[in-house]
Design a protein around this nucleic acid. Sequence first.
DNA 1: AGATTATATAAGTACATACTAATATCATTT
DNA 2: AAATGATATTAGTATGTACTTATATAATCT
Lengths: 123, 123
Amino acid sequence: MTNQTTFIDVASVLKLLSDKTRLQMLALLQIDECCVCEFVEFFQMSQPSISQHLRKLRDARVVHEERRGQWVYYSLNLSHPQVELINNILNQCPSQIAAIETWNASGNRVKCATNILAGSKEK
Amino acid sequence: MTNQTTFIDVASVLKLLSDKTRLQMLALLQIDECCVCEFVEFFQMSQPSISQHLRKLRDARVVHEERRGQWVYYSLNLSHPQVELINNILNQCPSQIAAIETWNASGNRVKCATNILAGSKEK
DNA sequence: AGATTATATAAGTACATACTAATATCATTT
DNA sequence: AAATGATATTAGTATGTACTTATATAATCT
């Protein structure tokens, strides 16, 4: 007997994704994991504000958190019970591929990313 | 040049649907139009509360309102710019077909519905 | 016209949300 | 061990939300 999703379950996910910042965070994570400082720079928002949004996403297990040294990387949790709903929603959002490419090309992307990438290559 | 949907557009729809009552209202409307008094009875909520939820849905043009005599009937607006997103979400919700059948069979469904149905048959 | 029924609106309230500013925690570097 | 950098948490505040109670509007019926 599979547990049926309730209206409350769906409404909770929608409430979580109904903030434009959190929604775009997930759209970015759909492409690649990000660390907190990258989000801070991308959204031009304060670090506590970003951390608080990420905490909500993490508490709901929509994203997964992984510490690597000083940095904490976030990624989509593809095993979330509502992953199908979440993907359907994200597919209705503007693709962030071009935005990420522009960001990379701009040279504004924070150094932690390249550090980590360089670090992982060394292993 | 088609106007691209923004994160704010999507987030607004999600916020609107992130209330469990409004979400279930739309799931009911996916099956059949309903008038206010039917919602009041179905949800066992106060009439002002129901009307306020319906006003939000109407203000966002997610539902269409049509007065028939004393009654005001609400139906899904299938021309809403985000109709695909809305349908994707509703498809993740529990089907209300059985709930409506149970409700009809219970004899609790308010009389305005049958009156209107009888009236429409006369035409 | 007056009474009744259906619906909408307004005002008030309790609670939730998204931010800021300040501080704490944790890992790394010197 | 102290300094630095990244992230988390806390407290405070302004705004938003979903309800209640009371009232207004609109259509129908007598």
